[in-house]
Design a protein around this nucleic acid. Structure first.
Length: 475
RNA sequence: GGCCCCUUCGUCUAGUGGUCCAGGACGUCAGGUUCUCAUCCUGAAGAUCGCGGGUUCGACUCCCGCAGGGGUCACCA
């Protein structure tokens, strides 16, 4: 496969959510898979909508995900600059070329006049086409009027890597604005110039642009630019499945997932398999597998719902696949405050016990706090336990005292604790459901915890006995 | 409204004429793994393949129509 040059070209109007990330991901995968380049280009041509700091935020998001770009505003490259607001002269030059060729003209209408024409067409129930209202003698373009493309009404056939073979009639090709009256180009114009100048081979973008492609094709032809390969991605849908996932439907800033302790490889795996599969039954893909196996022509044409449940499961799966050392390094910012004084070895032991229970790192404090601090004795845990509530407190106290004696004699290795615990079962004649529940609650004071012997081994003799004593006092 | 796209279990999907009275995964439910939670394992429920016509010996798969959903028709991208 020839090296592809793909790009992600966001406009800096806010944070990145999963839809944008998926578009970037697919473009990046194509570039990496073919040994080509992935370019980041900031499309900041709408001054009114621009949000301060959002270009930096987008870059931060991509970096967290590991979607690295080869050329971009911060690192430059052979086709710099990579920010459209810094390329205004280039667009002006190309616009001038079109004017000279008679393929662009100054738009003399005021917004009100234009609106009146549109309203009239609508009232008469016929489609509005600007090219039906071209001025006979347009004024010379001086840069203060919008500049329009003089389109050529014709039908188009083209291929889209995702959507297949597409066709439209001449009615969708119309004169559109190339340069706005503020001197900035429109997306419709400058993305074509930039993609050409930057030698972009694949234009990978989301669905909202598909209806405009014939217009773009007409412009490519007028400019004498060869068509790139098109790939149109369907939307990521809101959970209701009806409309595309937007901020109102809970589309979160992708960095929120970082804060909650989702792994970037989870996000990549999840987003890639949301609307794409390799034809096998594989669900979990590493990033390198994704790079190897991804194919644009296996991307679904219909939108796919964003399913948080599946994301949660997938993150747990990726967490479990990590070695303990990797996991430890990744979740270092998520420990409960009470863990502060404990050393790495202890925390690693704790982590080993909760690894298979962790779905996302923000759960770490809830899952591990009792390893770092003595929780207050909570009689509810005993009185509400379906095995223990049948017993009188005095009977439980006796049982726990007996247990303490046995546990005290252990060397606190997991094996020895298990042996002692098993002996205790015989001595007392109790079922594990009773005896182990009692000891587990006494030593953790947590509604849920890892296996008993393992937990006690990590907590250590002093701590276990102290907690049992505290519990005995309340019984 | 014109044009374009889409339509298989609740969700993500496999499936390119017979191997599909439709397979996998998430989720749900049940059982098992000496206590809880989780993991893991096993099992169950869950899709008349949007609807209606064709073509064919045979259609989820091909053709036509319809319906529903989505997108687009900006000096936004």
């Amino acid at each position: 496969m020839k090296p592809a040059r793909t790009r992600f070209a966001p406009s800096p109007t806010g944070f990145m959510h999963v839809g944008g990330v998926r578009t970037a991901l697919f473009a990046w995968l194509v570039a990496r898979q073919t040994g080509g380049q992935f370019i980041l280009r900031i499309e900041d041509t709408d001054q009114a909508r621009e949000v301060e700091g959002s270009a930096a935020h987008i870059q931060k998001s991509l970096r967290w995900l590991g979607i690295e770009w080869d050329e971009g505003p911060d690192k430059g490259g052979p086709y710099a600059p990579y920010m459209q607001s810094k390329r205004l002269d280039i667009y002006k030059e190309w616009a001038q070329k079109l004017v000279e060729q008679g393929r662009a003209y100054a738009d003399p209408y005021s917004p009100e006049e234009l609106q009146a024409l549109r309203d009239k067409a609508k009232a008469e129930k016929r489609p509005f086409l600007f090219r039906d209202h071209r001025p006979e003698h347009p004024p010379a373009w001086d840069g203060t009027q919008p500049l329009r493309f003089k389109s050529e009404a014709r039908e188009y056939d083209w291929h889209d890597e995702v959507m297949g073979d597409l066709h439209t009639g001449p009615e969708v090709v119309d004169d559109f604005i190339l340069m706005k009256s503020d001197g900035f180009p429109t997306y419709n114009f400058c993305h074509i110039i930039d993609d050409h100048l930057m030698s972009i081979t694949h234009v990978i973008r989301s669905q909202e642009f598909i209806a405009s492609v014939p217009k773009f094709l007409n412009l490519y032809d007028a400019l004498g630019i060869e068509w790139p390969i098109f790939a149109t991605l369907p939307y990521v849908m809101a959970p209701d499945g009806k409309k595309k996932l937007g901020k109102r439907d809970g589309a979160k800033d992708i960095l929120e997932y970082a804060k909650e302790g989702y792994l970037p490889e989870t996000m990549l795996n999840f987003l890639a398999t949301l609307g794409w599969n390799d034809g096998t039954e594989q669900e979990i893909f590493s990033v390198s597998e994704l790079i190897e196996k991804f194919r644009l022509d296996r991307v679904q044409r219909g939108g796919a719902c964003f399913d948080e449940q599946r994301l949660l499961w997938m993150n747990g799966t990726h967490i479990r696949a990590l070695t303990l050392d990797e996991l430890y390094a990744r979740c270092k910012d998520f420990w409960p405050a009470s863990a502060g004084d404990y050393d790495d070895a202890y925390k690693k032991n704790v982590l080993g016990l909760v690894q298979e229970r962790l779905k996302f790192f923000a759960e770490l404090p809830m899952l591990t706090n009792f390893f770092f601090e003595d929780l207050p004795v909570n009689m509810e845990l005993i009185d509400g336990n379906k095995q223990l509530k049948k017993f009188e407190h005095s009977a439980l106290k006796e049982l726990l005292e007996q247990s303490r004696t046995a546990i005290e004699q252990s060397n606190f290795s997991v094996d020895d604790l298990s042996t002692k615990l098993n002996n205790l079962l015989e001595q007392t004649g109790q079922k594990p459901g009773v005896l182990f529940s009692l000891i587990r609650i006494a030593t953790t004071q947590a509604p849920a915890s890892p296996a008993l012997a393992e937990s006690m081994a990590v907590l250590g003799r002093e701590c276990v006995l102290r907690r049992i004593d505290a519990c005995l006092q309340k019984l």
